[in-house]
């Protein structure tokens, strides 16, 4: 059976010793969505992304990405995803081109040089190929991070707090890049954030996590319609987070 679900998790849980990281999280994300996972610091957003991207093993539950099980077909999952961690770090002594070549080769690309040029062109990030990463600003690092994440044309792009620490111009540039990836390349985007403004401007659907539990998931449009009494997403978020629904 062919499913249009790109990500599906079922009762995903994670325990860190006696501390709960994630509790029975079941969510589905369809192809072409820009999904924003909202929550306070420590709500379990990074844990969720880490598990779905196969970086962390769940304590229980299952998850599939593009029909591949994260535990059985971890390598296949990683072939289909791009990942930008929070505070992306590269090899500072290497140039942008060398860093991208390294990750392109690890992604088994056959013509990495050509693909790097295409990606940098797409992200409007040319002219820095021979600069060392150590000289890059936070915003430039994020764009380099996006470049490495989409080199192998992933089906799903995971972004962990992508706008954290960026200046307004950096945020605008990054937002534009995410939208273009979604519109022109049809990439599904899974974004962790606690920036409600960012979700309003970028996402098509949202999920809300609190203390490891998924409180809510729906499209942004339906969410706004479902809470006519609230003027903004911020009010809706606070309402849901307080257990109002």
């Amino acid at each position: 059976m062919v499913s249009d679900y790109v990500i599906r998790t079922k009762n995903l849980s994670k325990q860190y010793g006696s501390k709960r990281g994630l509790e029975n999280v079941s969510l589905t994300i369809s192809a072409g969505e820009i999904f924003g996972l909202l929550g306070h610091n420590g709500a379990g957003k990074t844990t969720a992304v880490s598990i779905i991207t196969t970086l962390l093993r769940p304590s229980s539950g299952t998850a599939e990405v593009c029909g591949c099980d994260i535990l059985r077909d971890g390598r296949e999952v990683r072939r289909r995803i791009g990942y930008l961690p929070e505070n992306v770090e590269f090899y500072d002594a290497l140039t942008l081109r060398e860093n991208l070549l390294y990750f392109a080769r690890l992604s088994m690309l056959s013509d990495p040089g050509k693909r790097i040029a295409e990606v940098l062109e797409f992200l409007d990030f040319t002219g820095h190929e021979e600069d060392k990463l150590g000289t890059f600003s936070k915003g430039m690092r994020q764009r380099a991070g996006i470049a490495q994440a989409i080199l192998h044309r992933p089906t799903v792009l995971f972004l962990d707090e992508p706008t954290s620490g960026l200046d307004p111009q950096g945020v605008i540039t990054l937002r534009r890049s995410i939208k273009r990836l979604n519109e022109y390349l049809g990439m599904t985007v899974f974004m962790n954030t606690h920036s409600l403004a960012e979700v309003t401007k970028t996402c098509t659907s949202i999920g809300i996590l609190r203390d490891g539990e998924l409180l809510y998931q729906d499209s942004l449009e339906r969410t706004i319609q479902a809470f006519p009494q609230h003027a903004s997403l911020e009010d809706i978020y606070l309402d849901i987070d307080a257990g109002g629904r």
């Binding site: 196969t54 970086l55 296949e76 990683r78 990942y83 961690p85 090899y91 690890l106 490495q148």
Partner: peptide
């Protein structure tokens, strides 16, 4: 210390 391991292990390596 650099924090590059997450990127490294997010690639389809053995």
């Amino acid at each position: 210390y650099r924090g590059t391991l997450r990127l490294l292990f997010s690639r389809p390596i053995g």
